[in-house]
Lab assay of single mutants.
Amino acid sequence: TETVELHKLKLAELKQECLARGLETKGIKQDLIHRLQAYLEEHAE
């Protein structure tokens, strides 16, 4: 999932992505995007 794609997701979809990775789901859309980006960078293959 790339940065551009995360911005296209709806808030509910971002929350699902966070939940699937065991991440916090509180906060505004930008918080969730930032959290997912950090996770994806950390776990990049």
Rank of each mutant, 00 (worst) to 15 (best):
V4A: 11
G27R: 00
A38G: 13
A12R: 10
L36C: 03
A44D: 15
Q30T: 11
K26C: 13
D31K: 02
G27V: 00
A44M: 07
H7F: 07
A12P: 11
T1H: 01
G22S: 05
R35L: 02
Q16N: 09
I33D: 04
Q37V: 07
L40W: 11
H34M: 15
L23F: 00
K10I: 09
K29H: 04
L32E: 02
E2C: 09
T3L: 13
A44C: 15
H43N: 09
E2R: 08
L19M: 09
L11A: 06
I33V: 11
K29M: 05
L32M: 03
T1E: 14
T25H: 05
E45L: 08
I33G: 02
L14V: 02
A20E: 10
E42I: 10
L23K: 00
Y39R: 07
Y39S: 09
I33F: 06
T25N: 04
Y39A: 08
A38M: 08
R35P: 03
E41S: 10
I28P: 15
E41P: 12
R35Q: 04
K8H: 08
L11F: 13
H34Q: 14
E17S: 04
A44S: 14
K26Q: 12
R35M: 04
K26R: 11
L9C: 03
L32A: 01
Y39P: 07
Q16E: 12
Y39V: 06
V4P: 12
L19T: 13
A12S: 13
E24D: 15
L23I: 08
L36R: 02
H34A: 14
Q37G: 09
A38L: 10
D31P: 02
E2N: 15
A20Y: 02
V4F: 14
V4L: 14
H43Y: 05
K26S: 14
T1R: 10
K10V: 04
L9A: 05
E5T: 09
D31M: 04
A20P: 00
T25M: 04
H34R: 14
E2L: 13
K29E: 11
L6H: 04
E41R: 14
G22Q: 03
A38D: 07
E24C: 09
L11N: 03
D31Q: 09
H7C: 06
Q30E: 13
R35V: 03
E24A: 12
E24T: 09
Q30Y: 08
C18G: 00
G22E: 03
T25A: 10
L11T: 12
H34S: 12
G22W: 00
E13D: 07
Q37K: 09
T1L: 13
L11P: 05
I28F: 07
A12F: 07
Q30R: 11
L32V: 04
K29G: 02
E2W: 09
E24F: 08
E17M: 13
L11C: 07
E41V: 11
L14S: 00
K10W: 00
I28L: 15
L19K: 12
E42G: 11
H7D: 08
K15C: 05
I33T: 07
I28R: 14
H43M: 06
A20S: 10
Y39N: 07
K29T: 03
E42F: 10
T3R: 11
E17T: 02
Q30C: 08
T1N: 10
T25V: 11
L40Q: 10
D31G: 01
L6G: 03
A38P: 07
R21H: 14
H34P: 06
K10R: 11
H43L: 03
E41G: 12
K8E: 10
Q30W: 05
E2D: 14
A12D: 14
C18T: 00
K15N: 01
R21N: 05
K10P: 14
E41W: 08
L40Y: 14
A44Y: 08
E41M: 09
L6A: 05
H43S: 11
K8P: 01
T25G: 05
T1I: 13
E41L: 13
D31R: 02
V4I: 15
Q30P: 08
L19P: 01
K15H: 04
K26D: 15
L11D: 08
A44G: 15
Q16V: 06
A12G: 10
E42S: 12
L32Q: 02
L32N: 05
K8R: 11
E17Y: 06
L32K: 02
I33L: 10
L36N: 03
H7P: 08
C18K: 00
